Computed example of a mutant assay.
Amino acid sequence: MSEARVRALRGATTLDRDDREHLIARTQELMAAVFARNELVEDDLISIVFTATDDVHAAFPAVAAREAGITHVPLLCARELEVEGGIPRCVRILVHAYTPRTARELRHVYLHDARQLRTDLPE
């Protein structure tokens, strides 16, 4: 394996409803998939940026990370641009981490209705 480098991973999911428990569950599902598919652990993480569309109000997506035990990583929440025809109730993440994987070996994760954002990526 090569030496670990700083890489960025993307992912997104959607919510069926704007509900705190549902948002936390879906966000944790997304984070777990990104971490598992890329063999990451908390110590590999540098930061995570969360964004949500304007129709998400139930909770900050970063709460899902804190409730999953990610306590020593800087987290930031922001709003997505409101674009005509955009996907409703969408939560996105941008994970900065150390990994020995090359950029081509990274596995970005798009779940639920967010799959349509990146149909070019393998599951």
Rank of each mutant, 00 (worst) to 15 (best):
V6C: 09
V6K: 12
V6W: 02
R7F: 02
G11N: 05
L15A: 06
D16S: 12
D16E: 14
R17V: 09
R17C: 06
R17M: 04
D18Q: 08
H22C: 07
H22P: 05
A25M: 10
Q28K: 13
E29S: 10
A32Y: 01
V34C: 10
F35L: 14
A36I: 00
D44H: 15
S47L: 11
S47C: 11
I48L: 13
I48S: 03
V49A: 14
T51N: 13
T51E: 11
T53Q: 11
T53C: 14
D54F: 12
D54Q: 10
A59E: 14
F60D: 14
F60A: 15
A62D: 12
V63H: 09
V63C: 08
V63I: 09
A64V: 01
A64T: 04
A65V: 07
R66H: 11
E67W: 09
E67I: 00
G69T: 07
I70R: 01
I70G: 02
P74F: 10
L75Y: 06
A78P: 00
E80W: 00
L81A: 12
E82F: 02
V83M: 12
G85L: 02
G86Y: 03
R89E: 04
R92N: 07
R92W: 00
V95K: 02
H96A: 11
H96C: 02
T99Q: 05
P100H: 13
R101N: 08
R101T: 00
A103Y: 01
R104Y: 03
R107T: 00
V109K: 01
